[in-house]
């Protein structure tokens, strides 16, 4: 693994919804082989940042590079785990059906799942401990099991970089530690895992590196560097009232987020 190439390079990223900047001038580089946490209060742009990295949202400015390349060149090396609540689990599919979705790539749009795919999917299901439920309908799973189905689907993608949106939400303590164990195993195999997390109690135990967001980038670095009283009060303590006032002004007046010609 070359150390000079970052797993993720986010450069001056700004993303707006409805004219309102949700992420503003975000800049960070993340090295590979780590478990990285994105933290910040509700509505601070955590999910938006993940979606922008994954190319699901078009940035107003800035760019993202993954392993030094554009996303399309390395798409097969990236696995995305959306929030569990973002889908309707009453969908007519089994655990295996969903995990097999992870074997879909842009190069095999018309190919049906073959034996190799099914083998990899079953292995992934085993890793998250759902083997006895592999033919169970996804609507009949508990929240924690559904979350593990999503993680198994990502494992089936056999990626190098994993982007996970709140994988610990609605998960019981035993499942949480099992997932964490799995993440650490992935890290020891050189994988990079980027996780949106909301529980400040556990961040120092879970993560090697942290990105603290509140629309702006508040802090980045190792947990001790980021989790200072000042940083946390900047992010959570309502100290940024001026910034949020500006954000509201921009939306009310349909003002551009930045002037033309200053894009990068």
């Amino acid at each position: 693994m070359k150390q000079d190439i970052h797993a993720i390079e986010v450069h001056n990223l700004t993303v707006s919804y409805d004219g309102k900047p949700v992420l503003w001038d975000i800049d960070f580089n993340l090295d590979s082989g780590q478990i990285i946490g994105i933290i910040g209060p509700n509505g601070s742009g955590k999910t938006t940042s993940l979606k922008a990295i994954m190319g699901l949202l078009k940035p107003a400015s800035g760019f993202v590079k993954i392993f030094g390349k554009s996303l399309d060149e390395v798409r097969d090396r990236v696995a995305y785990v959306p929030q569990r609540e973002s889908v309707d689990w009453d969908f007519p599919a089994s655990v295996l059906d969903v995990v097999l979705m992870g074997r879909s790539k842009s190069q095999n749009l018309f190919r049906r799942a073959n034996k190799t795919d099914i083998g990899i999917a079953l292995q992934s299901i085993e890793k998250v401990g759902l083997t006895e439920f592999k033919n169970r309908q996804i609507s009949q799973l508990s929240g924690g099991q559904q979350q593990r189905v999503f993680i198994a689907r990502a494992l089936a993608q056999q990626a190098d970089l994993y982007l996970m949106d709140e994988p610990f939400v609605g998960v019981d303590a035993a499942t949480e530690s099992a997932i964490l164990e799995l993440l650490r195993e992935m890290k020891s195999n050189g994988k990079t895992v980027l996780i949106i997390h909301h529980d400040l109690q556990t961040v120092s135990d879970y993560f090697d590196y942290l990105v603290l967001l509140n629309t702006r980038l508040i802090a980045k670095g190792t947990p001790p560097e980021v989790l200072t009283r000042e940083n946390l009060s900047n992010a959570y303590g309502g100290q940024l009232t001026l910034l949020s006032k500006i954000v509201d002004l921009i939306r009310q007046n349909e003002f551009p987020v930045r002037e033309k010609g200053f894009d990068l």
Partner: peptide, 23 residues
């Protein structure tokens, strides 16, 4: 028949479909 796999992924989880490069 041809697009079945893609239609299913797209219907279940459009964001994920896009993330794996389905048009």
């Amino acid at each position: 028949l041809l697009l079945y796999k893609n239609l299913v992924i797209l219907s279940f989880n459009p964001d994920f479909a896009q993330s794996v490069g389905i048009p």
